[in-house]
């Protein structure tokens, strides 16, 4: 199965399997990755699945949409490659993806 690694703010990595077509937020919450909350259920409406994509992966994942920006840009930890995991649909091309988590979710 393809995998994705979520790296907590303190450096702790969590490598989990994902299923193509699910969102990275669902993959994370199904595997109880700490620091991904997904309070709104995946509608880009709460900002609690904030992840930061590393530069070498951003062309694969793509940058955030306006809808994501509305929420993430309110976070003091927002960076150029910040995204909402609920809006990132997992694909085969993302096998091996590594993302960082902010220190806090909103």
């Amino acid at each position: 199965m393809p995998t994705v690694t979520f790296v907590e703010h303190d450096g702790t990595p969590h490598t989990i399997d994902f299923v193509e077509g699910q969102s990275m937020m669902e993959a994370a919450t199904n595997n109880a990755v700490p620091g991904i909350e997904g309070d709104c259920g995946g509608e880009a409406a709460c900002g609690t699945c904030h992840i930061i994509i590393t530069d070498d992966w951003i062309s694969t994942t793509g940058t955030r949409s306006d809808r994501e920006s509305q929420m993430i840009e309110m976070s003091p930890e927002c960076q150029a490659n910040s995204r909402l995991a609920c809006q990132l649909v997992a694909s085969k091309a993302m096998d091996g993806l590594k993302v960082r988590l902010p220190e806090f979710q909103m």
Binding site: E37, D39, C40, M71, M74, M106
Partner: peptide, 20 residues
């Protein structure tokens, strides 16, 4: 299981700032 999905904090740009 899904208590966290409550909407008392609202959703979208006006989501409660003091939730935490």
């Amino acid at each position: 299981a899904n208590a966290r999905h409550h909407m008392s904090f609202g959703f979208g740009v006006h989501r409660c700032m003091g939730n935490r």
